[in-house]
Design a protein around this nucleic acid. Structure first.
Length: 571
RNA sequence: GCCCCCGUAGCUCAGAGGACAGAGCAGAGGUUUCCUAAACCUUGUGCCGCAGGUUCGAGUCCUGCCGGGGGCACCA
């Protein structure tokens, strides 16, 4: 279904052209026709303030323009009463008959309800999580995972063909440290004396999980690995951690389509090729320090081993960036540019990358790298997210990843629920910090939006259980008997297409969470008054209401699914 | 120092250039012969950080300032 604001805008545009042809409006260029939703305390459902904006170019009073537009407005099944109000607003009321038909339309759409064709025929890729396999998914990474998956689902609902990708690096220094840490834990497990690095050692992974892995490994191979070096242990730890990550993700219904290993960019020569191409374009130089440094600094550092620099200042950067260190190893930047070239060359229409806001600079430099080589980057969007704080018992919990002072996704799920995590991780704008309140997430009351939303669906399901028990059917329901309050709720349901469109365009899945809460907010008070099986309800009215609740149920199932939440029949 | 984000009700936060600024929670009081009370009803709250500007119209866009957070590696 096309969003209603868009449908109204098309009518208004047609009306303006018709009015111009008829001489009721002068000729002028028309850009976008604005249509907004009308607030509940105003008259109408949708409104266009277009007349005010045209007053200058048409050299007419807004009210006269509005009347001219209304006069030439083409008919449409969804348009009921139309009025001009205030300084020149054109207010549209949805047609009652059309509204009644939407109940059947929503039911027929089912799981597809609200779908829009914004991305029809287009391919999108969402890269998210992309954490190196050095440890389990912590609460911060969870936000990235839920956000990425939320964006992917929104894009799918907006008609895109979506691929989910996980980019990882299992070759760098961090992985070597992991292997070393694992080796130490293994030696401990087989009772070989070994110095345990102290807890401030930045090279040592403190997590208990390595102790568990080491015990398991010792049970498996005995002490036959005591002379192995870090790489064997790295392999083992990596395998176990990846299994763990995927099992955790499975619990929140996240499955990536592609796992992209940074290594392949080295093996297939992409990294080297990227460097060469940048060099050919004159963006590369080799020197001990940045070429912008003073002669004094240069002379002072002339004896140092040179590094390879990307002249990003030519593309507006504040300083040039190292792409190959003086020891010959590339920095993260170079393979990252190569990776993005690969992504762009795979021909997606939309590329989304979910990153922590500490990667802002890096993302800019990668974009500059693509610009330098002439790749398009306008379809590349990076969604940055800020940190998650954790609160339990009214107190903030401090977390540090390396020091094993973290909380894993698994722990969070066990302590709260997968549904709570989905909702809370999604409900705030990505680029704002937010605090996950463990106590609130498990609270079974109206303080907790998770249950409030799910309960709306459960209440619908309850009605149909009752109907089945009584053998009462909604066939041939006469919807003219349906209550105004129910239609108000239906109007809210019909906002899903425009909400989805907006969420997809701005890559803001939190708007869906807000919408879901609004929907529940509109539902419960109505449910309280619009009863199906209560004393004194005429059977024909009951039939109409039952039919309506079928549509309401579809709407709640849809928003819950969009948020990755479960759709419980009972609570 | 440079860059990014934020500043809206007591709290947490929505807000897509349009009409009188809006949700949830917290506070106070009430509701159950009825499909689950994980619910409902009633009730108060705003110098939208400050100052300019653009606009017919600014919480929304621009500039400056103040306050808070984050980022600015030959780490990933």
């Amino acid at each position: 279904m096309k969003p209603l604001p868009e449908q109204h805008a098309e009518l208004v545009e047609a009306a303006i052209h018709a009015a111009q042809s008829a001489g009721d409006l002068p000729a002028f260029d028309l850009s976008d026709v604005p249509v907004t939703r009308v607030k509940p305390n105003q008259s109408g459902d949708y409104a266009s303030p277009v007349a005010m904006g045209l007053a200058k170019s048409a050299r007419m009073k807004p009210l006269d323009i509005a009347h001219a537009i209304v006069k030439h407005l083409p008919g449409a099944d969804f348009v009921g009463a139309v009025e001009v109000a205030g300084p020149g607003f054109i207010n549209f009321h949805l047609a009652p008959a059309w509204l009644r038909d939407q109940i059947g339309a929503v039911i027929a759409a089912g799981a597809e309800f609200g779908r829009v064709d914004l991305g029809a025929g287009k391919r999108a890729q969402v890269e998210f999580l992309s954490a190196n396999p050095t440890g389990p998914i912590t609460i911060g990474r969870t936000r990235g995972a839920i956000l990425g998956e939320g964006i992917a689902r929104v894009l799918e609902a907006a008609g895109y063909d979506v691929e989910r990708e996980y980019y990882f690096n299992n070759a760098g220094a961090q992985m070597r440290k992991l292997g070393e840490s694992m080796r130490i834990r293994y030696l401990q497990a087989v009772n070989v004396p070994v110095d345990l690095p102290d807890e401030d050692d930045a090279d040592f992974y403190q997590g208990d999980y390595l102790i568990d892995f080491a015990r398991a490994l010792a049970d498996e191979v005995g002490d036959s690995w005591v002379d192995s070096d870090w790489s064997a242990f790295k392999e083992y730890a990596e395998k176990r951690i990846f299994e763990w990550i995927q099992a955790s993700l499975e619990r929140v219904n996240i499955r990536h389509d592609i796992f992209f290993n940074e290594n392949q960019l080295y093996h297939n020569g992409d990294v080297e090729r990227t460097l060469k191409r940048l060099e050919e374009k004159g963006y590369i130089y080799v020197a001990p320090v940045r070429e912008q440094e003073s002669d004094e600094v240069k002379a002072l550092n002339a004896h140092l081993k040179p590094a390879t620099w990307f002249r990003s200042t030519q593309l507006g950067d504040s300083e040039d960036r190292v792409v190959v260190k003086s020891n010959g190893d590339p920095t993260y930047t170079l393979p990252d540019i190569a990776y993005h070239i690969d992504k762009v060359e795979r021909g997606f229409d939309l590329l989304v990358n979910v990153l922590g806001s500490d990667h802002k600079k890096e993302a800019e430099v990668v974009r500059m790298g693509l610009d330098a080589l002439g790749y398009r980057t306008d379809h590349l969007h990076v969604v940055f997210m800020q940190m998650v704080h954790l609160r339990r018992g009214g107190e903030e919990i401090k977390m540090s990843t390396r020091k094993a002072n973290y909380i894993t996704l698994d722990q969070m799920i066990d302590e709260t629920s997968a549904d709570a995590i989905q909702y809370f991780m999604l409900h705030r704008n990505a680029d704002s910090q937010f605090t996950f309140d463990v106590d609130l997430a498990v609270k079974q009351s109206n303080e907790n939006p998770v249950y409030y939303i799910q309960y709306a669906y459960v209440r619908c399901a309850g009605i149909f259980r009752e109907a089945a028990a009584r053998g009462f059917s909604d066939d041939d329901a006469d919807l003219t008997l349906l209550d105004d309050e129910a239609f108000d709720f239906l109007r809210k349901c019909l906002e899903l297409p425009e909400t989805l469109t907006y969420a997809a365009q701005t890559l803001t899945p939190h708007t869906i969470a807000h919408y879901a809460l609004e929907l529940a907010n509109n539902f419960h008070p109505m449910y309280d008054r619009v009863r199906v099986f209560a004393e004194g309800v005429d059977p024909d009215v009951a039939r109409a209401r039952l039919r309506f609740y079928r549509a309401a149920q579809v709407a709640f199932a849809r928003v819950l699914t969009l948020m990755g939440m479960s759709v419980p029949e009972r609570m």
